[in-house]
Simulated assay, not measured.
Amino acid sequence: MRFNLWQSVKISMTIVGTTIGAGFASGREIWEFFGSYGEGSSGSILLATLIFFAAIVTILQISWRNHTSHYSEILKVIFPERIALFFDVLVLVFLLSSTLVMVAGSGATFQQWNGSFNIGVLVMVVAVLVILFFDVRGLMSMNLVLIPVMTTVLIFVCFHFLHISGWSASWSETPPTSLPVWPSAITYAAFNMLSLLAVLSTIGKEVRHQGEIWLAGAISCGALGMIAYLYNYSLLKVKDLISQYEIPLFALVRDYSPVWVFAISFVLWLAIYTTAVSNIHGLASRLSDWVRLPHWLVGGTVLLLLLPLTQLGFATLVTYLYPLYGVLNLFILTMIMLYPFSSRSKKKSL
Rank of each mutant, 00 (worst) to 15 (best):
R2E: 14
R2L: 14
R2K: 15
F3G: 13
N4Y: 11
L5G: 02
Q7C: 13
Q7D: 07
S8N: 09
S8P: 04
I11E: 09
S12H: 14
T14H: 01
V16D: 11
V16H: 03
G17V: 04
G17K: 03
T19N: 02
I20H: 01
G23F: 12
F24S: 00
S26K: 08
S26C: 01
G27R: 11
G27M: 08
R28T: 00
E29C: 00
E29G: 00
E29K: 01
I30M: 04
I30Q: 02
E32A: 05
G38K: 02
E39P: 09
S41I: 08
S41G: 01
S42W: 12
S42M: 15
S44L: 09
I45M: 03
L47G: 12
L47E: 11
A48F: 15
L50H: 03
L50T: 13
I51E: 12
A55D: 06
I56K: 08
I56D: 09
T58I: 06
L60I: 05
Q61V: 08
S63K: 12
H67W: 09
H67C: 08
T68I: 08
T68Y: 09
T68R: 13
Y71P: 05
Y71C: 12
S72W: 13
S72L: 10
E73W: 13
I74L: 10
I74E: 08
I74D: 01
I74S: 06
L75N: 09
L75F: 04
K76G: 11
K76Q: 13
V77R: 09
F79I: 05
R82I: 15
I83H: 08
I83D: 06
F86P: 01
F86D: 06
F86T: 12
D88V: 11
D88P: 05
V89K: 13
V89Y: 12
L90N: 08
L92A: 11
V93Y: 00
V93E: 06
L95G: 14
L95N: 09
S97W: 05
S98V: 12
L100T: 02
L100E: 10
L100D: 08
L100A: 10
V101R: 05
M102I: 04
V103G: 07
V103L: 13
A104N: 01
A104G: 00
A104L: 04
S106R: 02
G107A: 10
T109Q: 07
F110Y: 12
F110T: 00
Q112I: 06
Q112F: 11
W113V: 06
N114D: 06
G115L: 15
S116G: 08
F117I: 04
F117P: 00
F117E: 07
G120L: 07
V121H: 01
